[in-house]
Amino acid sequence: MKKIGLYFGTFNPIHVGHLIIANHMAEYSDLDEIWMVVTPHNPFKKKSSLLDNHHRLEMVYLATQHFDKIQPSDIEFRLPQPNYTINTLAHISEKYPKYEFSIIMGEDNLKGFHKWKNYETILQDYNVYVYPRISEGRVEHQFHNHPKIHRVDAPIVQISSTSVRKGIKENKNVRPLISSGVWKYIDDMGFYKK
């Protein structure tokens, strides 16, 4: 059975940090593929700051087109909004019964995982792959040594989509932080300048 890691994000925009983590998971864990799941509306984020869904999906496509084991996914676009991860997992598992799905998240997200809708069900039915985040420290509470939570010693990346957007708005050179195709798309469309 093919193992798919679901890397959720608004990807507003996708940057090299996302690709470093996704590629590391694809190459150095037991996951066969990583699906970059573009989130239409994260219940914890203000929707007004997001580019339209199709623009963010296009940027993920442009960023991942040369990675055999990483692909964009718009699976959440067709689900009722705001959506929750448990709903996506149920939908995607039913749609692709021959795949085994897992979640990829940063250490910072694991800290708040107990606030997720039906998090106990997620941990009962799915594995969670966690990559380190330097600013948050390790999580040592209820998820320590949990059999469904797998820590992956991925590179620590301190790049955020927020800092990329801020850099573009301030007319800084952020090109090293995003792939060339994504940079061209953002520049051609004039995104994030206001």
Rank of each mutant, 00 (worst) to 15 (best):
M1A: 13
K3E: 14
I4T: 05
I4C: 09
G5R: 04
F8T: 01
G9E: 03
T10S: 15
F11Y: 15
I14C: 02
H15D: 11
V16K: 06
V16M: 11
V16D: 07
G17S: 05
L19I: 05
I21M: 05
A22F: 07
E27L: 13
Y28V: 10
S29Q: 03
E33T: 01
E33P: 08
V37Q: 03
V37T: 04
V37C: 12
V38G: 00
V38N: 00
H41L: 14
H41M: 13
H41Y: 10
H41T: 10
N42Y: 08
N42S: 13
N42A: 15
P43H: 10
K46I: 01
S49N: 09
S49F: 05
L51P: 06
L51M: 11
D52K: 10
D52F: 00
N53R: 03
H54I: 12
H55R: 14
H55S: 15
R56Q: 00
R56T: 02
R56M: 05
M59V: 04
Y61N: 15
L62A: 01
L62P: 00
A63H: 01
T64H: 03
T64F: 05
Q65V: 05
D68A: 13
K69H: 10
I70W: 08
P72N: 01
S73Q: 11
D74F: 09
D74H: 09
I75C: 12
E76Q: 07
R78H: 13
L79C: 13
P80K: 11
Q81V: 11
N83C: 13
I86M: 14
N87E: 15
N87L: 06
L89Y: 08
L89W: 11
A90L: 14
H91C: 03
K95F: 06
P97V: 07
K98W: 10
Y99E: 15
Y99S: 15
S102L: 00
S102K: 02
M105T: 04
M105V: 01
L110C: 09
K111Y: 04
G112D: 09
W116F: 12
T121I: 13
Y126E: 08
Y126M: 14
Y129A: 06
Y129N: 04
P132T: 02
R133K: 12
Q142T: 14
F143K: 10
H144L: 12
H144W: 11
N145Y: 04
H146M: 10
P147M: 10
K148P: 00
R151Q: 12
A154P: 01
I156P: 00
Q158N: 03
S160Q: 04
S160E: 02
S161V: 08
T162A: 11
S163H: 11
S163L: 11
S163E: 14
V164N: 02
K166N: 12
K166M: 12
K166H: 06
I168Q: 02
K172Q: 15
V174M: 14
R175V: 08
L177K: 03
I178A: 12
I178V: 15
G181L: 01
V182G: 10
D187H: 09
D187I: 01
D187W: 06
D188N: 14
F191Q: 01
